[in-house]
């Protein structure tokens, strides 16, 4: 265990932990967007700023990428932190002006309008803030790695490889779940599941009992292949309600 000070109070954290997680575990709120506790820190959104004093050095830094160490002093609400957070949030808001989740976060930070009013660098109505959670979750939590970043600079965007329908996508919806702006849609239309953003359409498996289309076939195949358990096939013949 490591002892550190956050906003003047002493807390404990585990060795090797990042500062953001340590704060969350201790019930301290630091706004953040590209961090997920199941994934390694990425450091892209730049929102989780804090001020850390270590020895002589005081630095403004992203807490998700900062490894905790004994005796550091952390401030989460100094004027410098608030200024950085507000200006970063304004930039994020220009990328996702229509996302209710982002709007709410911005309002909490006291931002009502975006100054300047220039068009965001993404296409209109895009609402992706390029946090990479979907890309990383798909690759590192689920496995297929069906989406990726393409281009650099303001042209950077998340797409399936070659911007074609990603055959490897199993339609599990993890990306939809982790996306902080809610900009990935997933719709079940009869016997098809559609993920518009990735140009992916999947056929659904039907429950032997109630005939409801309840899971993409590709997802079943993926689980069977990964577990190598032949009895599991039967399990998927019935939907959760009929099992």
């Amino acid at each position: 265990m490591i002892t550190l000070t956050i906003n003047g109070k002493k807390y404990e954290a585990q060795k090797g932990q990042n500062l953001l997680q340590a704060a969350i575990d201790n019930g301290i709120e630091i706004p953040h967007l590209c961090y997920h506790e199941k994934l390694p820190p990425y450091g892209g959104c730049r929102l989780c700023q804090v001020e850390v004093t270590k020895g002589e050095k005081v630095e403004l830094t992203t807490s998700c990428t900062y490894p905790v160490s004994q005796g550091i002093q952390v401030e989460t609400e100094t004027p410098r932190v608030q200024k950085a957070r507000r200006l970063v949030m304004e930039l994020i808001l220009t990328m996702a002006p229509d996302s209710p989740e982002i709007q709410q976060m911005a309002r909490k930070l006291g931002i009502e309008t975006i100054p300047g009013g220039f068009p965001s660098s993404g296409e209109k109505g895009d609402d992706c803030i390029k946090c990479g959670l979907c890309v990383r979750a798909c690759e590192e939590l689920v496995g297929p790695g069906s989406i990726t970043f393409s281009s650099k600079g303001p042209e950077r965007k998340v797409v399936p490889p070659f911007e074609e329908e990603p055959e490897s996508c199993i339609g599990c919806g993890t990306c939809v779940h982790v996306c902080p702006t809610g900009c990935i849609s997933m719709e079940d239309l009869g016997r098809k599941r559609k993920l518009e953003r990735w140009k992916r359409v999947l056929s659904m498996k039907v429950c032997n009992d109630c005939s409801s289309a309840y899971i993409p076939k590709a997802q079943v195949d993926y689980y069977l292949k990964r577990t190598g358990d032949p009895y599991l096939a039967e399990w998927f013949d019935l939907c959760p309600d009929c099992r």
């Binding site: 959104c45 390029k130 970043f149 650099k152 303001p154």
Partner: peptide
Amino acid sequence: EESCGKCTSCREGIKK
């Protein structure tokens, strides 16, 4: 054009 595009501040800020 050369920003890798990872950070909000660098990617969006320089463009602005």
